[in-house]
Design a protein around this nucleic acid. Structure first.
Lengths: 226, 226
DNA sequence: TTAAAAATATGATATTTGTCATATTAAAGA
DNA sequence: TCTTTAATATGACAAATATCATATTTTTAA
């Protein structure tokens, strides 16, 4: 079993505040998991008795809306923790987590994490700051959904994917989303999303090759996103 | 100057975890403020060096969107704290706070509050739980904005206002929002909001008398909100 | 009290977005 | 490989929503 003391990913999450002793103890009680693309880590409404630390891969956090469609609330990648909100609120998770690519994930039981809150103030502050960051992001996102057009939101989302997850050697966006998933990030119908991608393609803003998307004119995309 | 030990409102916020000694010290360093309807408590981008505890009244938290319109992210009322996220993240506030009616508010400087985080674990947990609650609410809100129609959002918002802030003796909603403000909660044009209110009125779902709104058929409104 | 300004209301119309139908392409399994 | 299924694409149309114009009412302030 891999050791948390040597895990580089730890440095990017709230767990960086843990002492050497805490890390050794953590190594013993954590569970390492391999999650395949498309597999569910947890489902909305489930009781998740701990948090997940993402060592590698990307997943989507979705929420089922009243009309039966999934909405993608957030994409999460290595170095981030899942299930913090649920653990702190002592409630079932309000979002589902599904792998967008093969993932390596460690599960840390609640009992272990809650101990850090009492004993390690820096850890508490780190978690708080993360959640505060999520809240600010959610506010921004909310305003965009309420005030921007679908076209603006698509442009913005493409830029976000580029900035946050980078690109492959062929310049295509690293995160591979289906048109359906992309539509459920920007909050529109799949057909509308496809149509706008076609428009962007014709305008030379992007290049579509199968599922791959290459951003060709970032300046114009930024203008479009307002 | 009023004393925090005797303030009933305290019991409804994270501050309920404070000890008697902490409360006495708090009374000395807090500032009591009277904010008139329409006045700004703080503005997006400002550095707010502490938190505000709402003793009485209601205010709106707004965010300016790229198109120049304000979006109302949240309504906040007595017993709640303002500025926690900003203080914890050590960043300027990301939202503006404007009074919707006359308010009584206490300002507590950052230096004082930050001390509680170190010394009073229950206080930390309370704050964390509050912010986690806000985050969950924001996620829900986001999905609604992305997936529901304007009509559904209006019905839902009217029910929310009724449930959260109650009604006057004449059965009209207690929070007095302009059509413009209502539109900027549900994320639509003012005219669309007015038009739908008229429709609801004609359908007998609500009753409009000037600015006053009375919910006449809550069952049907709930069905409309899905 | 009255004039001016702001808020509310409604019609006409344009634009955006969603839905349904259907074709085409790509992916998965037998 | 072939067949089946799912994903992508596009047209035609319908519905939702925004915008602009203008009337009416309410509020504000001189």
């Amino acid at each position: 079993m891999s050791k948390c003391e040597q895990c580089i990913v730890r440095e990017f999450s709230s767990l960086k505040a843990l002492t050497k002793d805490e890390l050794i103890k953590l190594s013993d009680c954590k569970t390492s998991l391999i999650i395949k693309k498309g597999e569910v880590i947890f489902e909305e409404g489930e009781n998740v008795n701990g948090i997940y630390c993402i060592k590698d891969g990307i997943c989507k956090l979705t929420k089922l809306s009243a009309n039966g469609k999934d909405h993608i609330v957030k994409l999460v990648t290595k170095g981030e923790l899942l299930g913090q909100r649920s653990m702190i609120s002592d409630e079932p998770v309000n979002l589902s987590a599904v792998a967008l690519e093969d993932m390596q994930v460690c599960f840390i039981p609640k009992s272990e994490v809650m101990g850090y809150f009492d004993k390690n103030n820096q850890f508490s502050m780190n978690v708080m700051k993360t959640i505060c960051g999520d809240l600010k992001e959610a506010d921004d996102h909310m305003v965009n959904l309420a005030q921007k057009t679908v076209k603006e939101r698509l442009a913005e989302t493409l830029l976000y994917l580029n900035d946050t997850f980078g690109k492959n050697e062929d310049n295509s966006l690293k995160v591979q989303l289906s048109r359906d998933e992309l539509a459920s990030i920007i909050g529109t119908a799949t057909e509308s999303c496809i149509r706008l991608l076609s428009d962007f393609n014709k305008l030379g803003l992007i290049e579509l090759t199968g599922k791959k998307i290459v951003l060709k004119d970032i300046t114009k995309l930024k203008k479009l996103a307002e």
